[in-house]
Write a protein that binds this DNA or RNA. Structure first.
Lengths: 220, 220
DNA sequence: GTAAAAATTTACTGCACGGTAAACAGCTGT
DNA sequence: ACAGCTGTTTACCGTGCAGTAAATTTTTAC
């Protein structure tokens, strides 16, 4: 929600009273409009016009705030990544089992409320993800993002091992596998329309990955 | 390699002597040119011109053989799916363990020779896959294709269980999981540039999925 | 060998898109 | 209250693209 594109930074200030919009808000408005336009048209067919149609302001405003389509989409990608990370909120004080499960569920199913918004966001996210193969800028940002998600899983696994509630395993390998499987579960739902792919995925994670974390004769 | 788009089917015949090209060959030439163009430019930036530049013939020939860009890409998608399936060739007479491993390796790493071609093909395949979320025609074709790949894995697992070399498991779940993990392993390499993702994936499949197929006190 | 059909090329067109220019509004400070 | 800045709008290009039309060459059929 902080830093956006390069442009000129120290723009207008927020007028506290009434309902004033200023530079920063406008950018947020544009980001959200881009979101909806992208969800409707898809990356390939996205026109600047479509983004304009999704907001109150006219499409030319975009050119004032961003330096062309490329710049806009680069900023948007960062916006999406930040939003994704921000949406994964778990109780860090919980035991590793609970935290691990919570993280998996959040990534797979999204926040309990707003499940629809989750899949709309993910649709856009996954499309940008695929596009990274043709755009180094996208790749860099998404690579870093993907690693953070993975790392948060690895950390929980390592915590669990230290606390003795998980078996000794290769945390990197497990974390990567879980992250990957979550990713592909969502993708199968989004691209192929398999509505229950996330649920199947959840079950597979339970039976084939989490089970192997159980200490012999331990809980569950 | 057989049937193409709807158009008019029974075109010109092949002249045996010399090196003559006729209708069917031209379509193949166009398909291959589309392949290269797509690999270079990416789906979003693909122009008809690019396809024309990738072959001896001029780009207008495409309009003679296909009914516009959409028709071309629909035909191409089928072409790619068929090529993928045709490329997975394993010795069906081998024992389930060997066949399963062979299928996994083929999907992950491609034919031993032509490893470069494999990743070029997969790059295109995965991009089309992502695009399916915005195109029902693509989704239908790829859904069917994905299911066939999965089914071939499920079949091997079931064979193995009948022969008693695999433990009794939910073959559907295992087959789906293996297929999914292969998919995401490739994707991570292609989109994020993780060159050793396929190898990591292979190891994860071994340790977390195949291990669970081993009958207690069995081989390996 | 010649006429008809198929395949390919050369030359062109319409238009949708991203981007720009200049006019206009609204707030800020003095 | 008026100058000056930020932000927004209306109106307008220039380009690059998919697609077409007609001319030309090659292949097939008799």
């Amino acid at each position: 929600m902080s830093e956006f594109s390069g442009d000129d930074a120290g723009g207008g200030e927020v007028d506290v009273a009434d309902e004033k919009v200023s530079a920063k808000d406008t950018r947020e408005v544009i980001m959200e409009a881009t979101f909806r336009a992208l969800a409707k048209r898809g990356y390939t067919d996205l026109r600047m016009r479509d983004i304009g149609d999704e907001m109150e302001l006219t499409r030319q405003v975009i050119h004032y705030h961003f330096d062309g389509k490329n710049d806009l989409l680069a900023s948007f990608l960062r916006y999406v990544a930040e939003q994704y990370e921000g949406s994964v909120e778990v109780d860090e004080s919980a035991d590793p089992w609970t935290e691990l499960q919570a993280r998996i569920d959040q990534c797979l199913f999204g926040p309990e409320f707003d499940e629809f918004g989750h899949w709309e966001r993910m649709k856009v996210y996954h499309e940008l993800f695929a596009h990274a193969q043709n755009d180094d800028r996208h790749r860099e940002i998404l690579d870093e993002h993907y690693d953070q998600i993975k790392q948060s899983i690895v950390d929980v696994v390592e915590d669990g091992m230290e606390e003795g509630v998980f078996r000794e395993v290769d945390a990197e390998l497990v974390g990567q596998l879980i992250t990957d499987v979550i990713h592909v579960g969502r993708e199968r739902r989004i691209s192929l329309g398999h509505d229950d792919a996330p649920k199947e995925t959840r079950r597979a994670i339970d039976e084939y990955i989490l089970d192997s974390l159980v200490v012999d004769g331990g809980p569950e």
